[in-house]
Simulated assay, not measured.
Amino acid sequence: MNEQCRSCLPSGLSAEQAARQLALDGPNELPRPPRRTGWHILLEVAREPMFQLLATAVAIYFILGDRAEASVLLAFLGVIVAITWYRSAGRSACSKPCAT
């Protein structure tokens, strides 16, 4: 590349300009999402319509006296909650920035 082309390229901010921008705007980083605890994840799962529908079905089966059907459905509901909680907790751990 010749000298004429190099002078056309942007050179970036000087150290003084960069310090001024840092003081004015703060560091160049994305805001961190709020920390999600296990209880927050479980509350999110409980707010899902499908969870509420299945929990209602479990209650209806118990009221009707079909304990076997209610128990099976409750067990599957527990598995769904456990999988969702495990995956969400793992995703939260992976989103933490790595120490460098």
Rank of each mutant, 00 (worst) to 15 (best):
I41G: 02
F76D: 14
A93N: 02
V58G: 05
L54S: 12
L30C: 00
M1G: 14
R87G: 07
A93E: 07
G38W: 04
I83C: 06
E16W: 03
A75I: 02
P27L: 01
S92Y: 00
R67H: 11
I83F: 04
L30A: 03
P49C: 07
R36D: 03
G38E: 11
F51M: 09
D25I: 03
S95D: 12
P49S: 15
I41Q: 05
S95M: 09
I60V: 15
S14P: 00
A15W: 07
I80A: 12
G38Q: 10
L22V: 04
A75N: 03
C94Q: 13
A89F: 01
W39R: 11
R35P: 10
A89H: 01
E48Y: 09
P49E: 14
G12C: 03
R67V: 02
S7D: 15
L22C: 02
L22K: 05
S92E: 14
W85M: 06
G65T: 09
F76G: 11
A75M: 04
M1H: 08
A23V: 02
E3S: 13
N2D: 15
P10A: 13
A57R: 13
T84F: 09
P97K: 12
V45Q: 09
A15S: 04
L43E: 10
I80P: 03
R47M: 10
C94W: 09
R20Q: 13
R32F: 00
V58N: 09
R6T: 05
A23S: 12
T37N: 04
S88H: 06
E69M: 12
A15G: 01
L42G: 00
L22D: 06
P34D: 11
V45I: 14
L77D: 03
A18R: 07
L74Q: 14
C94P: 01
R20F: 08
L54D: 09
L24G: 08
A89M: 10
L54F: 02
L74H: 13
A59D: 13
F51R: 12
A59N: 12
G65Q: 10
L13Q: 08
A82G: 01
